[in-house]
Amino acid sequence: MASHAHEHHEPEGPALARAAQGVLEQAGEQWTAMRASVFAALAGFEKPASAYDIADAVSNALGRRIAANSVYRILDLFVGTNLARKVESVNAYVANAHPDCLHDCIFLVCDACGQTTHLDDDRVTNGVRDAAQAAGFVPQRPVIEVRGRCADCVGS
């Protein structure tokens, strides 16, 4: 039986970049300078970032203009290899703080301030998978998003 929730050691900064690089290379992909720049920019955001936000951050860091469509391609690769998660309702991305662990996501998205919290609860996500399978559907990558107000915004 799966655990109800699980904890991760969440590397930060260079340790997170090394973990992401290792996962990407294990997937048979190269960790290029551009991919490293996009990952660093994504990991530097406090809230989910759009491809345009990331392109601007990378452009500023490199001193040359980077097109958002180039960033989208890299983000698609990152989502496919578990280095990033897409917050579908806001069309934005967050770096996966534990890229070596593959699991389904639950995002709590604050409609007031935009803060997004990622939860791991296998009981809930396994229930969603089980319900989909019972309906004859084969789930590939469930993402659950709960919109509302975070504790900071409720208190203000």
Rank of each mutant, 00 (worst) to 15 (best):
L108I: 04
L83K: 02
V146D: 07
H118E: 14
C110G: 00
Q26T: 10
V71S: 04
M1I: 13
P14W: 02
L16N: 00
N91C: 11
G127C: 07
L75V: 03
P99D: 09
G22F: 01
D152C: 01
N91R: 15
D130P: 02
F45L: 07
P139Y: 12
V38C: 01
A36H: 14
V71M: 07
Q133P: 09
G63C: 06
V146H: 13
A40C: 10
A131N: 11
F45M: 01
G127T: 09
G63L: 10
A92E: 07
R35C: 06
A134E: 15
A134H: 09
T32D: 06
P14F: 06
Q140Y: 12
H103F: 08
V143I: 15
L75R: 01
G22Q: 05
D152H: 00
G155H: 01
N60L: 14
L16M: 07
S156R: 00
P11A: 06
G127V: 03
S59K: 12
L62Q: 14
A95T: 04
N96V: 01
R35W: 07
A43C: 03
S37K: 13
A132N: 12
S59W: 13
Y93K: 09
A67N: 11
A36V: 08
H8C: 12
S70D: 07
G63Y: 12
M1K: 11
A92K: 11
E29S: 12
R64F: 07
S156M: 00
V90D: 05
P142M: 06
S70Y: 09
M34C: 06
A33C: 03
S89T: 15
F78I: 00
V23M: 05
I144V: 14
P139W: 10
F45E: 05
F39Q: 03
I54S: 03
H98D: 14
D120T: 09
N126M: 09
A49E: 05
A131W: 12
A5W: 13
W31A: 08
E25H: 02
A17G: 01
E29H: 03
Q133G: 09
P48F: 00
